[in-house]
Design a protein around this nucleic acid. Sequence first.
DNA 1: CTGAAAGCGCTAACAG
DNA 2: CTGTTAGCGCTTTCAG
Lengths: 347, 347
Amino acid sequence: MNSGRGGGRRPTIYDVARAAGVAASTVSRALAKPDRVSARTREHVREVAERLGYQTNPLARALPSGRTQTLALFVSDITNPHFFGIIRGAEHQARAAGCTLIVGDTEESPEVEARNIQRLGPSVDGFVIAASRMVDKRIRELAEGHRLTLVSRQVDGVASAIVDHAEGTRQIVEHLASLGHRSVVYLIGPRMSWPGVRRWHALAAAAHRFGMSAAKLGPFPPSVAGGAAAADAALGSGASAAVAHNDLMAIGMLRRFAQRGVRVPAEVSVVGYDDIFGADFCSPPLTTLAGPFEETGRTAVDMLLGMRDQEPAGAPHGQVVFPSHLVIRHSTGPAPAAGAPPRAGAR
Amino acid sequence: MNSGRGGGRRPTIYDVARAAGVAASTVSRALAKPDRVSARTREHVREVAERLGYQTNPLARALPSGRTQTLALFVSDITNPHFFGIIRGAEHQARAAGCTLIVGDTEESPEVEARNIQRLGPSVDGFVIAASRMVDKRIRELAEGHRLTLVSRQVDGVASAIVDHAEGTRQIVEHLASLGHRSVVYLIGPRMSWPGVRRWHALAAAAHRFGMSAAKLGPFPPSVAGGAAAADAALGSGASAAVAHNDLMAIGMLRRFAQRGVRVPAEVSVVGYDDIFGADFCSPPLTTLAGPFEETGRTAVDMLLGMRDQEPAGAPHGQVVFPSHLVIRHSTGPAPAAGAPPRAGAR
DNA sequence: CTGAAAGCGCTAACAG
DNA sequence: CTGTTAGCGCTTTCAG
């Protein structure tokens, strides 16, 4: 029976102070600013703290200082393998800096994003938002009051890390053109997806340059399930090549094509984005635009960490972009001959 | 230029109190315990708070009360798709309860687990630990000082949610036996994996019952890369069926077999665990033991939430186990005929 | 270099 | 029902 004050309570600096025969403020200093205390007391305090099993309470430390040593990362869908790399990179870098990372799912909703930022504001030192669905203006506003960096999204005046998609998309089109394709459809994902609209513009421009026709279809959910509808739509369009908003959708398309007896790439070529887990072992293995997403997450928290001492609004903001590269696997191939028989799936 | 106290500061209850002409404690009550305040003041205070854009500071609220409205989930490897379901379920349930979820990666290390729990202790209301690598004793100790629940792990006296593997493993063996297999190897994962050792025991027992020989090989890293070595080892063992520690490893084996020209399932059958993303579209699609992992995560946070008012040590602890089911796809098939020619891969 | 004292923003008795 | 008064555990002036 643990009577009274000795209880199961965690020891506080006061307990340590009493045991060490010094003032609480000295304990605080000995632990947090070693050079503002004499070597002797420092060691003494540390020993006592150790012996008592003292550990500083992050909450209590955070209240007066405002520094929580915690960072938040929001992704639009935590179950999308695309975000793994980003999460992992961010997690890793945060930990290296002695910070805890909170990972939140914003469910593709700009409102949820904004609300979470407001809610968590005082509890974290900063935010990294991946694939934000918010409009530029809103992001800029929030960046005034909070330290925040972006991944897979660029907004003027806000720090960001992205992997290039413009040049990458051009490469995709070039690849397709070199295989003799004359038409391509882009299967669009969520309307608010920033990379999505950028990619479509890049694709349309590149297609024009290579003398190909380009059309967009959708939106479709950016998921394997969404890929089924996308596949049907692509087939209906008559294009010989389909570029999906992401690999999830592309994999869904592959499955749907297989189901309908449409041969890939003999009858249609398909390409995705992100090179997610599974892109290399689906059938056929997917041609996709890969990029250093882990780097992207790492960089975003680095930049965030660099802002810790500035006021949110005045913080320096870099816009780093990493190069992407096309991974050519087996879902793309020569365009079907002009007078080829109708598709098996159209029977 | 924002001079003095009016600055960019977030308004506090004191600001609201002054503006509303009441005491700070009344503001606190009006916002947190509406029924302990007259309807009039309640409404008045709320309006003023709204107007000032007041939002309660979770940190400040947490210090005196000890309740942070934050839960932590630790997984052994955040990039393993197996944990998606668990993370998602936990995230979802936490959010439904108005809590924030911290997801941490413990890198397969019991030390990291313990350290994180100590470190985060005061900042969260409880922990759910998935696939803990700690020994029973350590877990029990930690459960005395912290509210915690387990996923994919059972320890006497500690609440847990798992999906059954014993009966599931029996089903795997039965399936294999019915296909005429007489020998099976189990490719083991991390040594400290609790489901791992349980599965091996179940497998050995079931094999015995069905008159099959069983052997275990490993450990191998529980990853696609680890699957390559596992595949080679399995081949060397001469067994006609291989059961991998998880789907990641099984998929890696499939790839390695394909590389070596070993036909699956004609020459070897392979089975995995978890039915992760990708298990249905690798080639051949993987036969695997599936389970309601999302439920498992959900349940673990539910139990945790239920413990919030009790002392950690005395909290009630259920041990819920969800049934698993075997998903038979194309990586398992009839055992090769006895006098079959040597494997292609053995050339 | 060290101690005393005043908060950080909120909650929780305890009186009125 | 509402105001006053203490803290939660730590950091941070400000003196000494």
